[in-house]
């Protein structure tokens, strides 16, 4: 970490916080709109996860659990990234979650969805890029300096 220049360090912190902000809001919105469910999204699932998605949708209890975990997962990951608390775990699980979204609705040639996306994609989507960005955040940790992980580090000493 010592080898980062200040500009590199601040840029990485900013990247971490911005992604955290985005995921936190995604989670909060789902929490605040009481009618929200992943049914529409999962119902559209194609490729390797479509079987799993169908299974989730057809089981009310499972669906509710998935919705709950998704909403609170997003909120926890978002807070973790902004505050720099358990930042690496947050970044890795965030990347995994985003990859799940990506592979459920991949913008591959020949796969079409009735739910509109907010962009035009060919194989690579913003979701995939955000997942990769989180992976970078995990590889280049900043939270032990800029984040509550500082105190965890100190406690461990």
């Amino acid at each position: 970490m010592k080898t980062y220049t200040n500009l590199q360090l601040y840029s990485l912190v900013l990247l971490r916080i911005l992604i955290g902000w985005h995921l936190l809001y995604e989670g909060i919105v789902k929490l605040l709109s009481s009618g929200w469910s992943s049914v529409g999204f999962l119902g559209e699932s194609q490729w390797i996860f479509s079987g799993l998605a169908q299974w989730i949708v057809s089981h009310d209890g499972v669906l509710q659990t998935v919705d709950f975990l998704n909403t609170w997962g997003l909120i926890a990951i978002g807070c973790g990234l902004i505050l720099g608390l358990f930042s690496r775990i947050a970044a890795i699980s965030g990347a995994a979650l985003l990859l799940m979204y990506y592979f459920n609705n991949p913008p591959f040639i020949g796969m079409e969805y009735s739910v509109p996306t907010e962009g035009s994609y060919l194989i690579i989507s913003k979701t995939l890029i955000e997942a990769l960005a989180l992976w970078i955040v995990a590889l280049f940790p900043t939270s032990k300096q800029f984040g509550l992980d500082f105190f965890i580090k100190r406690l461990k000493k």
Binding site: G20, L24, L83, G84, F146, G147, D149
Partner: peptide
Amino acid sequence: RSLIKALAGIPIVGLF
């Protein structure tokens, strides 16, 4: 300074 840096995320949450 380290302390302030470590707590940098808190005002961001406030802003959020």
